[in-house]
Design a protein around this nucleic acid. Structure first.
Lengths: 231, 231
DNA sequence: AATAAATTTTTGTCAAACAAGATTAGAAAA
DNA sequence: TTTTCTAATCTTGTTTGACAAAAATTTATT
């Protein structure tokens, strides 16, 4: 029978306080010496407990500063996961694997939209489509509208894990988008693809919707893999 | 400018050794006192470093035992993620969200099979189908063959993250499978669904394949949500 | 060779101390 | 009275040295 380290016991206890809202998010934790008194433990043991809490996402503490209570969020957990995966897989590989996942999520979400989407959700997708149209030619605004269109589709699934995964992927996309030579031409083409997707949604044509979405996602991803020119 | 804690520096250094294969997986780490000498740090600081490494997945150490080098694997990272998500989401919710993800993965993989699968992969799916047929009536063997059929499809994607996610889901499925009243009837129905999927794959009918797969996955999941009887 | 006992080593934790950075309180200036 | 500056105090980061209990190794016995 394995006994648990005192540091684990202390960390678990403090985590319960945070999760039970006895310690507010952003609130400074009691000093190490206060925690020593409270838990009848030594300071090195308390410090170990604080490290444990930090890695479980319940604490944030810059060096030489007071520790602050936090709670893990879906976003943080997924971000941490992606970083860990990046560390053990080749960086390019892990990126491609995660992009593939994003595509599966988007295509799956599209199918959900077609099978069982409410009027509210359709209205949201339509609004996103209109905003794409209005943003044609403006690189920044169009990028955001482009992303919002995809997000509106994934949001229909009502699954916070997938939505956060999608948001995480989108963050990466925003930062790695290559420049396009003709903004208007590019935006118009993307808008046409969105429009085709939306129309297929309306007539509940799953096959057409998914074919266009697949093409749209692959083309969009391939832009980032284009052959460097020899200038 | 934030200085890094000595414990972080030590942890990072040891992690580099493990990742560079200077420390073999499963090998016992140097004693704490040896590490103190090597890094010119105090023992409490080394112990903090060991906790950090433990939570980054590079160390395993039961209480009162020697620490042992490990490496994170995709499986471990994903398992850790699932546990964390379970903690911050309602348990039932997180299960359902993850199940939804599995379904997206399977449907997306099916599409990949239809669009671009090799003869080798088709042969593997066919083999799994045949093994389903042979296992009809034997609960344990059929369950395994059922799972192997799905795995053969996901394996086509050649994405280790998704395959490990799928394996993780499958592990849960195995443990939570409810009993069926008529094994033969159940197995035959499942086999028929697998057969329909396979046939749709052969004739590259994406819509049909995905419709059956969707039905198959939903029905399979709903068995676990059946209304308790009033005996 | 196998088992038991004795010895040594190691982990887990403690207390006390000091250095450096962060925070607070009090005094001085505007 | 308010603002700024300085000194004092507090807190984190880390060290040293110690002890208890468990684990590992060595030695002795069968």
């Amino acid at each position: 029978m394995e006994s648990e380290r005192t540091s684990e016991v202390v960390a678990d206890s403090l985590i319960k306080e945070i999760r039970g809202n006895y310690l507010a998010i952003g609130a400074t934790l009691p000093t190490e010496r206060e925690l020593c008194d409270r838990f009848s433990a030594s300071r090195p043991t308390i410090r170990e407990a604080l490290r444990i809490m930090e890695f479980k996402g319940y604490l944030r503490q810059a060096s030489n500063k007071r520790p602050v209570a936090e709670k893990p969020t879906i976003q943080k957990i997924l971000k941490y996961t992606a970083e860990n995966l990046k560390e053990i897989l080749d960086d390019t590989d892990s990126q491609a694997y995660l992009e593939q996942m994003r595509q599966f999520i988007e295509v799956g979400a599209l199918r959900t939209v077609i099978e069982s989407s409410s009027e509210v959700n359709l209205a949201r997708i339509h609004k996103a489509l209109v905003e794409c149209h209005q943003a044609i030619g403006n690189q920044k605004t169009f990028a955001e509208a482009d992303i919002a269109f995809h997000r509106a589709i994934v949001k229909v699934v009502d699954n916070p894990i997938m939505l956060n995964l999608h948001d995480m992927f989108i963050r990466n996309l925003l930062f790695s988008r290559p420049p396009v030579s003709d903004q208007n031409e590019h935006d118009t083409m993307v808008y046409q693809e969105h429009k085709s997707i939306y129309e297929a949604i309306l007539r509940k044509d799953a096959e057409a919707a998914m074919a266009v979405m697949n093409q749209h996602l692959h083309r969009s991803y391939k832009i980032r893999l284009q052959v460097p020119s020899v200038e």
